[in-house]
Write a protein that binds this DNA or RNA. Sequence first.
DNA 1: CTGAAAGCGCTAACAC
DNA 2: GTGTTAGCGCTTTCAG
Lengths: 352, 352
Amino acid sequence: MATNEDNSVAHDQDTPDRPMTMQDIARVSGVSQSTVSRVLNDAVTTVPIAEVTRQRVLEVAGRLGYRPNPLARGLRGAKTMLLGIIVREISDPFFAHAVEAVSVRARERNYNVVLGSAHSLADEAIELRAVLETRHCDAIILLGDMRDQPRLLDDLSASRVPVVALWQGSALAGVDTVNVDNRAGVEAAIAHLTGLGHRRFGFIGEGQHGDVRARLSAFVESLTERGMPPGDAHILPTINDPAAGADAFRRLASSTEPPTAVVTATDHIAIGALHAAHGHGIAIPGQVSIVGFDDIPFAAYSAPPLTTVHNPITEMASLAVDLAIDRSPSGTADHVLAPTFTVRATTGPPPS
Amino acid sequence: MATNEDNSVAHDQDTPDRPMTMQDIARVSGVSQSTVSRVLNDAVTTVPIAEVTRQRVLEVAGRLGYRPNPLARGLRGAKTMLLGIIVREISDPFFAHAVEAVSVRARERNYNVVLGSAHSLADEAIELRAVLETRHCDAIILLGDMRDQPRLLDDLSASRVPVVALWQGSALAGVDTVNVDNRAGVEAAIAHLTGLGHRRFGFIGEGQHGDVRARLSAFVESLTERGMPPGDAHILPTINDPAAGADAFRRLASSTEPPTAVVTATDHIAIGALHAAHGHGIAIPGQVSIVGFDDIPFAAYSAPPLTTVHNPITEMASLAVDLAIDRSPSGTADHVLAPTFTVRATTGPPPS
DNA sequence: CTGAAAGCGCTAACAC
DNA sequence: GTGTTAGCGCTTTCAG
């Protein structure tokens, strides 16, 4: 009994070539493997364990540097502590930032993050979901509008894994959503601009997907309510990309009666617009005011620094992670967070 | 025999509430579970299987929407098709872009990516490695210099999982590395600048870590070889952040005999420098030329667009993924890829 | 309070 | 060619 530690596995090496198992701990501490499992998992609902046994097992496990094997755990139906993320476009700086915020919060909650990007390719995203699900992620977070991938969504909402849609743009049947109040954001931008004296507005941004679509309709409605509905000529649909933004801005600037203020669907587009303005010698905000949306990190460093609607990325990501992990058993909810408005240097009074 | 499909699990529902197992396939197609395994894995080394059987199994598996359970597979010792990434700072736009490139290539190779960010916090990163390893990632990719976390590195190089270090800044014992040729990049920048007529140079960028450290020493050596060694007053150590870059640029500009050309360790810093220059009415490149390093997506959209050393992000990421997955059995190698030089609008002749 | 034993879904000998 | 049989490391009854 006194020497039965001798049949233990080697634990003096810095790097054992085989990871410790519960069997090892059990052998060394002289209890059964199931007792080790009980001690190490100490759930509140578990059977009581003698304090001496518990201490001994804990000590041995610590000394041997035991780490549970999540694969085996997951196989047995327990939590995998894996959070799946499906991103629409991870190359989009906004989503890159969002992924960071999500993974930071996930780590605080002791979760690891499995990343998949959909690349707007329906089949690939479906495949992705299948992978993520069979990998037994405890939950899945959708980043960005996926409504052009209806099969993905159907699949997802019917599956047993909790799904939370972040920046999906609007409510979605069957899953929890966390959205920014796009309407309030655009409204703040227009209020700021009209306060400055602007009366002719332009909008740049594709109106097909999620947030961006909501921003466009908020733009139209806000101006209509103010009695100055925008003409179609001043609404330029474009993909979400600086190059496209630059191109659209050029067209807007060279139109007859160009707008004095331009609202862009995202900072990503605004950056492109700024670039085009600079290239064509159009003074910002002297000749045209520009406001963005999202407040990506780069927004503060554009020239001039961008006035924009601040998307509460960190808060939204945290909320989404918590929702995904804590998954309230009954029903789904749509959370809408308020943006704030950040005035920097791309807005000013219209030219007189 | 004709009706023995009846004891199959339900497969008419769109969403079966229990994922298919090989058992299910076996039952439905009337073969043993191990035969199913053989068919579905069809390794070249496998025992031959009757074509009829194979077809039947394949058909049933397809019809029932079978997906292998990676947990069970991994538990049995097979590949998990999981690639772990440990990032130094995922908030850094360069690394965000790099993560994207890595995950794109990983997906092409049918791997999923597990993300962890180190946040420069030693203990957390070690914990992370433990998690990644016990999750049985098939390989791990390190993004950025981790040498301030020696325990991580020791742990990693001693472990059985292949490790590839990307943008680690220099060779590293025990693991494969993929680096950009920082010396060649800086040399190209200096050659460009001296060709323009510059003789007084400044450098902004922290010199502690990896790539950035290598760039600083390349800067010093390149100028020394040209017979114009930079004074200490013109070398400003700063963290890798636009705000810090802006601050450093201000100090440089207000020094006695300010440099006419500034080389920054990264675009991230260059962006800050540009911002500061704009704020202080310093003309770029009229009064000062600035060159960056990395060519992050935004570099083309700064005002003025940034002249910078182009880091071949996509190629390097692909290489790293391939190395990690295909792990040559013997020894490690250090791969160094050549950067290119992209002239945009922040460089010009010095003021006369 | 603790041990024995049965699998989770899969792969890999080993039989026939 | 194909079926049988062990487990991988863990959680969870079920018996003491």
